[in-house]
């Protein structure tokens, strides 16, 4: 039956987010989640059941084997929102505000959430890899030679043409960050796609923004904001292509890429501030 249009720009997530409001369920789950340990920990049936539920709900972001992607890698056994079973339960039930992680309390039973926790624990190798690269050198590159700060903001400083990165180290796996630096077109969020509008007099505007069936909104590299009825324009298009340069693999050395990644991984937002 499933209704998902997962490819339709996160349709699945928007649908799931709509169920946040189920306050009764959420409250009840929250109470249930007060127990610090998973009642199903280590149960082979629970792990298998959790794996089955993990597939449709979690793999779009965390990868088919929990290896991470747009969401964090879950195989290292280190979790950014807390390491207790109840922390994992709460993250699955309620999501993580300010990130792409939605809550699933209204769609998954408490038992299923505990099963998923059991499955996630079964994936953990507890082998936090040594992070190559030098964070300080990476920070210098970010604001200097790399030119990243022209488009990306960190803690309020920097540009706004690209996604803000203040807590990107919590939100993305290392592999995903590396891919995003080297091949920025491999997974572009729709709101960062390239939008182009051409007026009837030939004036062309290019930037990020939104294109719907009748209107277009653009923010260009100079920070100018535009909004048009598409019927008033000569043309208006959107390409699922990033405005970010795709030549960092040539512009920076392998060691410099590692430095830059070390800096990005260190950006952990409020958690770092605590």
């Amino acid at each position: 039956m499933r209704l998902s249009l997962t490819a339709a720009y996160g349709g699945r997530y928007s649908r799931r987010l709509q169920h946040w409001w189920t306050a009764l369920i959420v409250t009840s789950v929250a109470c249930f989640a007060q127990r610090p340990q998973n009642p199903l920990a280590g149960d082979p049936d629970a792990i298998a059941g959790g794996g089955a539920a993990f597939r449709p709900y979690c793999t779009p972001c965390h990868g088919i084997r929990g290896e991470g992607g747009r969401g964090p890698d879950l195989t290292h056994g280190v979790y950014s929102a807390g390491d207790k079973d109840s922390d994992l339960f709460n993250v699955i039930a309620h999501g993580v505000p300010g990130t792409d992680m939605a809550g699933f309390a209204s769609e998954l039973s408490q038992q299923d959430i505990w099963r998923i926790v059991a499955f996630i624990r079964s994936l953990a190798r507890h082998d936090v890899p040594a992070m190559p690269g030098n964070r300080a050198a990476g920070e210098k590159l970010f604001w200097g030679k790399g030119g990243c700060g022209a488009c990306h903001a960190v803690n309020g400083k920097g540009g706004r043409l690209g996604p803000p990165l203040s807590r990107i180290g919590r939100e993305r796996s290392l592999a995903f960050l590396r891919e995003s630096v080297l091949t920025p077109n491999s997974d572009v969020k729709p709101q960062y796609a390239t939008v182009t509008a051409v007026k009837r007099d030939g004036t062309k505007m290019v930037g990020i923004g939104s294109l719907d069936n009748f209107t277009v909104q653009i923010t260009d590299a100079a920070g100018n904001d535009y909004s048009f009825e598409r019927s008033d324009l000569a043309s208006s298009t959107r390409e699922l292509k990033s405005l970010m340069p795709d030549d960092y693999g040539r512009k920076l050395t392998a060691a410099e890429i590692d430095d830059l990644l070390a800096y990005l991984v260190s950006l952990r937002g409020a958690e770092a501030a605590r």
Binding site: G49, A52, A53, P56, L240
Partner: peptide, 15 residues
């Protein structure tokens, strides 16, 4: 319990 024996995923570069 969920009995679908796996899932599907979007192809990010091909919306």
């Amino acid at each position: 319990q969920w009995y679908q024996a796996s899932t599907e995923a979007a192809i990010p570069s091909e919306p």
